[in-house]
């Protein structure tokens, strides 16, 4: 099947906005992602070093019933919804996203490094682009807006140094 083009950003934006609004209307809370990833991380550490997790107040907070959590179920939903959308558009196939001037192995290394930087930052700010910028943005939370502009400022400032990866 030939890949279908992506939908207009405004159509996708309205769809995403309504989804976010439904989360507020049903649950009184918005969307998120990094909190679920933190729970998976804690569960893995817990498997190998239970006492160590319990001795650390930050891990311990996530260790009790790590998967019986709204965000974890929401992220499972994201997997289902993302997969279905990709399947319907003929986009589900193995590949590596990268610019024309970088090898896929170098891209994998940078993806890991960028992920590590982001994971650290997301914990420090108590949320990521979904849980803090999008959700906090829509509820007009001060921290959400400060965070959003900080993210874009730093990403634009960094872009020049990693341009060989993307363009």
């Amino acid at each position: 099947m030939k890949e279908k083009p992506y939908w207009s950003p405004y159509v996708s934006g309205v769809g995403l906005g309504i989804t976010l609004l439904l989360a507020f209307v049903f649950m009184g809370r918005g969307l998120g992602a990094s909190g679920a990833i933190m729970r998976f991380t804690t569960a893995i550490v817990d498997l190998f070093a239970h006492d160590h997790v319990m001795a650390n107040p930050y891990f311990a907070k996530y260790a009790e019933n790590p998967f019986s959590n709204w965000l974890v179920y929401e992220i499972l939903g994201v997997m289902i919804g993302g997969f279905l959308s990709g399947m319907l558009a003929g986009r589900n196939k193995w590949r590596t996203g990268r610019g024309p001037n970088i090898s896929k192995h170098k891209r994998w290394v940078l993806a890991f490094v960028g992920g590590a930087i982001m994971g650290f930052g997301a914990r420090l700010s108590r949320g990521c682009t979904s849980g803090l910028a999008l959700t906090g943005g829509a509820t007009l939370a001060v921290g959400g807006w400060v965070f959003m502009f900080a993210v874009f400022a730093a990403a634009y400032a960094t872009a020049y140094f990693v341009r060989k990866q993307w363009i």
Binding site: V113, M148, A155, W166
Partner: peptide
């Protein structure tokens, strides 16, 4: 945290 996350976004290409 946002500044750190933004660096990670440009380097990693994704957000969580």
């Amino acid at each position: 945290g946002g500044l750190i996350l933004g660096v990670g976004f440009a380097v990693g290409g994704y957000c969580p």
